[in-house]
Amino acid sequence: MGLLDQRFENGNVFVTSLENLLNWARLSSLYQMQFGLACCAIEMMAASASDFDIMRFGIIPRATPRQADVMFVAGTVTLKMASRIKRLYDQMAEPRYIISMGSCANCGGPYWEHGYHVLKGVDRVIPVDVYVPGCPPRPEALLEGIIKLQEKVRKESLVKKSA
């Protein structure tokens, strides 16, 4: 039988705080904004496929920002793309989270010096919750980033806004 059945044999009432319940619900169903930018997106797709199976974290790709909770910025953010990313972020409903995946999205990566067309870090246009290093990061690294984000969501408070 399931885990909950073993804990609550006869009753169906248990007590928790609203905060805990909301945070648990949020971190268990982080719907993903379905888009990728460069080679990091290939690793993100690998993370979605059966070997790594991102769905066991409750992450389901959604094709519209209005149904998404988390955005993986997977790849090089060009200046041309940056304004589009900002718009997609603005269209997401709160609470919304950003995982910056790979060196390019974190700080410009190999384009840091001569990349006239690259935004040196997506955090210049939108706030980032978790940075995943790597070029590109392996799917395990992305999963680690997701777990870090879940830890962050678990500690959130209704009254006190987390930084």
Partner: peptide
Amino acid sequence: DYKVPEYYNGMKVPY
């Protein structure tokens, strides 16, 4: 002789 601009649409370009 191209010079990278300091800003593009309010976004800082150099590192």
